[in-house]
Write a protein that binds this DNA or RNA. Structure first.
Length: 648
RNA sequence: GCCGGUGUAGCUCAGUUGGCAGAGCGACUGACUUGUAAUCAGUAGGUCAGGGGUUCAACUCCCUUCACCGGCUCCA
């Protein structure tokens, strides 16, 4: 038997007589074989114990290989399950995949067991895992026919379900130690001794197959890395993310609150959070006007019949609050702004010469979120959307999409976000799912793609991810610590224009149905604000900072001077405070520092005599003395430029 | 909604087998008059999440409601 071995440097060698992928590699480079975790055989990952096929190409896969970590973590999950089965023999196995780039961890395993796992159990499971690593237990692959597998696992309903659904003619299983065997595609690392750094993180509830009607499972999350250092770095990063938690910073910086006695998921914006929100709103409104949007306002409630007409009462009722009767007519708190904007469009007749019409609103909507899913500002029951709808002709669609995208990118860059783009189109295999005719869909998908290409924006095409009413572009932003957040969306809507029968009069003097494009840049202002807090870790750029400058007199003798400086700054439209407490300068600085105030202006006797201030910048510290008017002018220009930096 | 956990002063958290409610920070008052991340002293601040029960006695035990935290298929 002859097999080709290809090494990472690209060198290929012909080898014969090897019984396993490991031996094959070892014939060329024994050290590399030992370092390998799995092998790639004809571009598929396989166990090192796999018997090579005649004529196949084998490549070693080591730590350095991007795919290796996923296998390693999957094997870590099996290690977890093996330990659990030794300690808790009655537990039944669910699924146990590897997770990549998930803040929750690097792997998990689901178990079905009557008793809950306690935090103390986690510690003993982890200890057992270490013992199994020490024993260097091998991961063994067992293959059997599907029928045989179903027979052998007939006691295990969950596994039979998976085997029935996923198994090919041959089903594969892996064992680890004497107690663990699970249906698993593999591949796995050769033995548990290779797992160097791991940690169990938490235990949580989950449903079998994510289905609420299915049996409840207990999920144990863990993380693993090739080295201890990587593990520690990850834990540190996690701590860093915790420090940025908008719920914590929201309280510490007095930005907002959510008060359970007034309602879960309902946000109270405090003055400081309100200032930031207004800065964001002013920015968007300026941009909207500049870009030819009409700014509109619509009511919070409307007759329920409107939502019947729009279809929301049908397919969206789960998220809608119950209607209320007013004068025996049912009214509905709005979960969306779209029907109202349609109402404005339809309030008068339009010529094709009027188009495109762009209507924008910061519209507050209310949606029912189930009690367990609320999360700070990220998931709430009442929020304000930066919502807009474009009504245009098919010929104008591309320019409108382009305008939306340019707008979105401008906004995200202003806040210092990176971004990635997805284009969601129809599932060609399931045409019945979608509303509207083929030609419309093709036009829309093409225009979305062309606009992306015109901007040279790299994007991922998501087949079958379009909504039933139209294709869309989604933009995800990436924050300062690399987390992705779904924010912007540009969607075609073929449903509402049809349902409301809106029209414009075309050049041919006949009525036509306009194209409707729905777009949002922030999605929800509440959520966007939460993301911003975490992105900046509460240290907002000058144009957003609720307190931009804090004036700090060294002793009470400079209090009057500090007040005058503060007034002068306010006169220059800078948001300034003076700290007149009877504290030492160190304490005042610490206070301003913890409040993440961008500039601190220290005034002692020297400064008071010369109309200057000693400027201290949040991150860089003391910058030396500067005339007050000069500081004000420079700070103003930073504000006007919406600078992300504090370089005076 | 479901699984697990948590709920004590504005914040972070102690509080033994059921037996008088605690600390640090913060707030307030006073003294100090201070030069780049915490001056000292004093004072106030609590329906122990809400409701019900067991008990001579409940922050503590039981039931229940509410809220919050972690999670609820990136496929065996």
């Amino acid at each position: 038997m002859s097999v080709t071995v290809r090494l990472p440097d690209g060198k290929a060698t012909e080898v014969s007589g090897a019984q396993s992928a490991f031996e094959t590699i070892a014939q060329v480079d024994p050290a590399l074989a030992k370092a390998s975790l799995v092998a790639r055989m004809d571009s598929r990952l396989v166990d090192l114990s796999t018997v090579p096929r005649e004529g196949s190409t084998i490549e070693p896969v080591t730590n350095g290989d991007p795919e290796a970590l996923e296998v390693y973590r999957h094997s870590s999950a099996h290690l977890l399950a093996a330990a659990v089965l030794e300690l808790f023999p009655g537990a039944k196995l669910g699924i146990g995949p590897a997770l990549m780039n998930d803040p929750k961890g690097g792997f998990f395993y689901d178990f079905k067991r009557d008793e809950p796992f306690t935090p103390e159990d986690l510690a003993s499971i982890e200890e057992r895992m270490r013992a199994l690593v020490k024993k260097n237990l091998p991961y063994r692959r067992i293959e059997m026919g599907k029928a045989e597998a179903l027979e052998r696992f007939s006691q295990d309903e969950l596994k039979c379900h998976l085997i029935g659904e996923k198994g090919d003619a041959v089903a594969s299983f892996y064992t680890l130690g004497d107690h663990f065997i699970d249906f698993c595609r593999g591949p796995h690392i050769p033995s548990a001794g290779r797992i160097r750094a791991f940690k169990l993180l938490s235990v949580a509830g989950a449903y079998w197959l994510g289905d609420e009607k299915g049996p409840p499972m207990q999920r144990i999350y863990g993380q693993s890395f090739f080295t201890r250092e990587e593990m520690e770095d990850w834990l540190k990063q996690r701590e860093e993310a915790e420090k940025r938690d908008h719920r914590r910073l929201g309280r510490e910086l007095d930005l907002f609150s959510i008060q359970d006695e007034y309602g879960a998921g309902l946000v109270f914006w405090h003055p400081k959070g309100g200032l930031i929100r207004r800065a964001i709103e002013d920015f968007t409104r300026d941009e909207l006007e500049r870009r030819g949007y009409g700014l509109v306002f619509t009511p919070h409630i409307a007759q329920h019949s409107l939502w019947v007409k729009s279809g929301h009462a049908n397919f969206y009722s789960d998220a809608m609050y119950a209607p209320m009767a007013i004068d025996e007519i049912e009214y509905q708190l709005k979960p969306m702004n779209c029907p109202f904007h349609i109402g404005i469009f339809a309030a008068r007749q339009h010529s094709y010469r009027d188009l495109p019409i762009r209507l924008a609103e910061l519209g507050t909507v209310y949606r029912y979120e189930r009690s367990g899913v609320m999360h700070g500002l990220m998931r709430v029951r009442g929020f304000t959307q930066d919502d807009a709808h474009h009504f245009c002709t098919p010929e104008q669609a591309r320019a409108e999409v382009l305008g939306c995208l340019e707008f979105a990118l401008h906004v995200y860059r202003t806040f210092g976000f990176q971004y990635t783009v997805e284009l969601s189109v129809r599932d060609p295999k399931n045409p019945a799912k979608y509303l509207g005719d083929d030609a419309m869909w093709s036009m829309a998908e093409e225009n979305l793609a062309l606009a992306l290409e015109e901007l040279a924006l790299p994007y991922q095409r998501m087949e079958g991810e379009a909504a039933f009413y139209g294709p869309k572009i989604d933009i995800k932003v990436v924050d300062a610590i690399g987390r992705a957040w779904q924010l912007g969306t540009v969607q075609f809507d073929f449903n509402l224009p049809e349902r409301f029968r809106i029209e414009y009069i075309g050049e041919d003097n006949r009525p036509h149905r306009p194209i409707m494009i729905h777009r949002a840049l922030f999605g929800s202002l509440e959520r966007f604000f939460g993301i911003l807090v975490e992105h900046f870790a509460g240290a907002f750029p000058l144009w957003l900072a609720p307190v931009q400058v804090s004036v700090l007199p060294i002793t009470e003798k400079q209090n009057d001077y500090a007040q005058r400086v503060r007034e002068q700054l306010s006169g220059s439209r800078l948001r300034a405070e003076a700290d007149l407490r009877g504290e030492k300068i160190g304490a005042k600085i610490r206070h301003a520092q913890l409040q993440k105030v961008p500039f601190m202006l220290v005034c002692g006797a020297r400064e008071a005599e010369s109309d200057t201030v000693a400027v201290r910048e949040r991150h860089r510290g003391d910058l030396g003395a500067m005339r007050v008017d000069e500081f004000a002018a420079r700070a103003r220009s930073l504000v006007e430029a919406r600078s992300l930096e504090l370089n005076l």
